[in-house]
């Protein structure tokens, strides 16, 4: 790290609102080989816009999901389908928790 870089102001982006990420961007951010990301798309975990892998366009939300799916596989030893199921259940859990919080706040 150069001293300049340390004191420069870095612009933060909201991961969930980033758009137009390519397959290569996602691979890089996930430190994963392309075939693992393609697998996630085939499994329906990620639904990028665009027809072929070269034209796929991902969003920050896809990126976040990909990272979680890969970590669940690597850390917990679940397979692809298991990671996909866990992600869907986590989505549902988050929505229910949000509704619960809203109900409790409005009480």
């Amino acid at each position: 790290m150069t001293p300049d870089k340390q004191f420069a102001r870095i612009t933060g982006f909201i991961l969930e609102e980033q758009t137009e990420l390519s397959l290569a961007d996602v691979c890089r951010a996930c430190a994963a080989q392309a075939d693992r990301i393609v697998e996630l798309v085939d499994e329906g975990v990620l639904a990028p816009a665009g027809g072929t892998p070269n034209h796929w366009v991902f969003t920050g939300i896809h990126l976040h999901r990909a990272r979680v799916a890969l970590r669940l596989q690597d850390h917990l030893g679940v397979n692809l389908a298991g990671a996909a199921l866990a992600l869907e259940l986590l989505d549902e859990l988050r929505e229910l928790r949000g509704r619960l919080d809203a109900l409790e706040a409005g009480r």
Binding site: Q6, I10, T11, I14, L15
Partner: peptide, 21 residues
């Protein structure tokens, strides 16, 4: 120890992530 200065994007919500490339 490494110190960085960064901007918090306007409109960020709890549970979201700031990405510093």
């Amino acid at each position: 120890e490494h110190q960085i200065t960064f901007t918090i994007p306007k409109g960020i919500r709890a549970g979201q992530h700031i990405r510093l490339a």
